Computed example of a mutant assay.
Amino acid sequence: MKRENFNIMSDIKIIEDLKAQLLCVIGEFYRLLTKGSNVTQEAILDCISGAIIILYILADRLGYSYSAVDENIQKKLKVGIIEEDIVEKQGKNLSRLASHMEDRMK
């Protein structure tokens, strides 16, 4: 087998592994949420941060830069704010996240 084909197969395996990891993290997140207040905040935060990390790495493996992901997130936030998405109406979550991302970019 040519070395190029081996690299492609290795990349596909890594992408598939990342997808499986993401499903596991989301499954664990849902499981933790069913437990109610008995769950530590750290466990929930671990799931959320783990999913974000996996998604950034998956984007990179699929050919998207981290900054392209950030820019796309900012665009989506602006649209949600303008269109007054329900989470924006009820808690300004999109505005607060947009502000957080802008501060992070400085």
Rank of each mutant, 00 (worst) to 15 (best):
S99G: 08
R31S: 12
R61I: 07
G27Y: 02
E71T: 14
D85E: 13
K2L: 11
N72L: 14
Q21G: 01
D85Q: 11
L23T: 04
D70S: 15
K35T: 01
Q41G: 05
I14E: 09
T40W: 01
G80T: 04
R31D: 10
F29Q: 05
D11K: 13
L58P: 13
L62A: 09
V69S: 14
Y66S: 13
S49T: 14
I82M: 01
K35P: 00
L33F: 03
E4P: 01
K92I: 06
S95K: 07
N7T: 03
Q90H: 02
D103C: 13
L18P: 01
D85R: 11
Y30F: 07
E71R: 15
R104M: 14
E71M: 12
F29G: 04
F29T: 02
V25K: 00
L94D: 06
I57Q: 14
N7G: 00
Y66C: 11
Q21Y: 02
I52V: 07
Y56C: 10
S65M: 09
T40F: 03
E71H: 15
K89C: 04
Q41T: 07
I44N: 00
Y64A: 12
I86L: 06
K92V: 05
E102A: 15
Y56Q: 12
M105Q: 12
S95C: 05
D11N: 12
V87N: 10
N5K: 07
K13G: 03
L33I: 06
C47W: 00
E83V: 09
A98P: 04
Q41S: 05
Q90L: 06
D11W: 04
E71K: 15
E16P: 01
I86F: 08
L33M: 12
E4R: 08
L33K: 09
V39I: 07
Q74L: 14
E28L: 09
L62N: 13
K106H: 11
S67L: 14
K75Y: 09
S49L: 11
E83S: 10
L97I: 13
G27R: 02
M1A: 09
E42L: 05
K106Q: 13
K19F: 04
V87R: 07
L32N: 10
I44T: 10
